[in-house]
């Protein structure tokens, strides 16, 4: 494992910690898209199907369990917790799941490495992860002011993608027979989605203003 991959995993973990911090300490999920969180839960559920059958490393198994556990608990908090769910901005979080799920599934049926249930679902999870942030970005645009924790949550998620991209470039040059066009394709789309957000994130940070995305 290289340093870029590790940093990517850790920023991914940081994004989840920031979100849980907001939910646990402030008891608020204001500005967080439940749609995006549900899509991430689906991403991890379909990607880590082999968690108990294929052993890679203790690190991998533990991280997979953390991602699965936290993503489903975040969804539970936003839907069921007696105070947290009251802060959910339901009226602005209107993006439909199936607009993203259906095309990703159809694409995974056509573009995959092998036509097996396991492989198609794994490919589906990569395509879906690439676009799962879209409902969150739409909600950010509709929010008048984005609070710091929400802004930092999306920032860490974007940083994770950036580091994974550098990791793939690094692995491409350092490992033999490293052919992974599905990961590349999905990864580039996913990282590109954050470019706009990063522009406004750094702009607000530089000017010491509250983050606001233009509608």
């Amino acid at each position: 494992m290289n340093i870029f991959r590790l940093t990517g995993d850790l920023t991914h973990l940081m994004s989840i910690i920031v979100l849980l911090l907001k939910i646990h300490t402030i008891k608020s999920c204001a500005g967080i898209s439940l749609k995006t969180q549900e899509l991430y839960a689906l991403v991890f559920a379909t990607r880590y199907l082999d968690i108990f059958t294929t052993y890679i490393s203790l690190y991998n198994t533990v991280m997979k369990l953390i991602f699965l556990g936290t993503s489903f608990s975040i969804v539970w908090y936003m839907r069921r917790h007696k105070t947290v769910r009251l802060s959910y901005d339901k009226n602005n979080d209107t993006f439909r799941h199936y607009f993203l799920v259906l095309p990703c599934f159809l694409l995974a049926l056509v573009l995959n490495n092998r036509f097996t249930v396991r492989e198609v679902l794994w490919t589906f999870s990569l395509y879906l992860e690439a676009v799962a942030i879209i409902p969150q970005l739409v909600l950010l645009q509709r929010s008048k002011n984005v609070d710091n924790l929400t802004g930092n949550y999306v920032f860490f998620l974007g940083a994770y993608r950036g580091f994974y991209l550098i990791n793939w470039i690094y692995r491409y040059f350092t490992e033999n027979h490293y052919r992974r066009w599905i990961t590349w394709m999905a990864g580039i789309v996913q990282t590109a989605l954050y470019v706009d957000f990063f522009y406004y994130y750094f702009k607000s940070w530089k000017n010491n203003e509250k983050l606001k995305l233009p509608a």
Partner: peptide
């Protein structure tokens, strides 16, 4: 790997 996408990443 076997020439496909590696599964060692999260």
């Amino acid at each position: 790997g076997e020439g496909g996408d590696a599964k060692d990443e999260l």
